[in-house]
């Protein structure tokens, strides 16, 4: 019983941390992330409205997936945060044909 609770707490911790830092809880983000991205991208690119924490590079920095060697995996990798779902639902992600897919320090 006690072990089970600790296990659940351990499993929930990364989710809780992520939800606290993300723009919305994961369940909501799964539904609305594309709207947030589409809205903010036009505001930023066309009007210069830059909202700290709302940039795609902020998403990328937080949701980085690292391989065994600690290097950030690229968008083509099935373990990449966006790719892991988008491959399953067969929705291609065009973002990374222009946007950098990994945090800068990982590329050095």
């Amino acid at each position: 019983m006690r072990g089970g609770l600790i296990l659940i707490a351990l499993l929930l911790t990364p989710l809780a941390v992520r939800a606290a830092e993300c723009l919305a809880p994961p369940a909501e983000m799964r539904r609305v992330h594309m709207d947030l991205l589409a809205h903010d991208r036009s505001a930023a690119a066309r009007e210069g409205i830059r909202r700290p924490g709302h940039g795609l590079d902020d998403c990328i920095t937080c949701h980085v997936v690292r391989d065994a060697g600690g290097a950030a995996v690229d968008a083509a990798n099935p373990r990449y945060f966006c790719t892991s779902c988008h491959v399953k639902v067969a929705v291609s992600v065009d973002c990374f044909s222009c946007h950098r897919a990994t945090p800068v320090e990982a590329a050095r």
Binding site: D57, I60, S97, C98, H99, R100, P103, V104, A107
Partner: peptide, 12 residues
């Protein structure tokens, strides 16, 4: 390896 603040891509 684009700059994070300057997206650049083929076809644009």
């Amino acid at each position: 390896d684009q700059r994070p603040y300057t997206p650049r891509g083929k076809g644009t």
